[in-house]
């Protein structure tokens, strides 16, 4: 869901800006989003920082996105497996849709997400670019 609130976005800075996540302290499985319980039964997690390197698992092109993204025109979105093991959905930029494939190596970059109108805040976060 698309919620245009500076405060809601601010609460997500930690994982959106830095690609921070969680590692199960028992089995070591890594997650991008916080989990209540790991399938291994553990409820203890350590905070970790992902390297930002990953591979595309699946991808698509959005031709008509939310109004806040209209400045970008059409854009690519992909499901990415991070090198450390967690899975994340993110925009892929600085590339053409035709250049992408399953298995394309990508790396995290810090970019503008959208602006809240003419006067509102500018929202930033992590996107990915094909590794170059």
């Amino acid at each position: 869901m698309f919620r245009d609130s500076s405060i809601i976005r601010w609460r997500a800075y930690k994982d959106r800006y830095m690609l921070e996540g969680y590692e199960c302290s028992s089995c070591g499985k890594k997650y991008f989003e916080s989990k209540g319980m790991c399938p291994c039964g553990s409820i203890e997690f350590n905070e970790i920082e992902f390297s930002g390197v990953g591979k595309i698992v699946s991808f698509t092109q959005i031709h008509s996105g939310p109004e806040a993204f209209s400045e970008q025109g059409k854009y690519c979105v992909a499901i990415i497996d991070l090198a450390e093991g967690a899975r994340i959905t993110a925009q892929i930029v600085d590339c053409k849709f035709e250049d992408l494939a399953i298995g394309t190596n990508v790396e995290a970059v810090f970019r503008k997400f959208y602006k809240s109108g003419e006067k509102g805040a500018i929202h930033y976060g992590t996107k990915f670019v094909p590794k170059f």
């Binding site: 970008q72 970059v109 810090f110 970019r111």
Partner: peptide, 16 residues
């Protein structure tokens, strides 16, 4: 700059 790049994103990239 890319359509989603500005001074802050450029500065962050260089700083990393």
């Amino acid at each position: 700059p890319g359509k989603d790049e500005d001074t802050i994103t450029i500065a962050t990239h260089a700083a990393r």
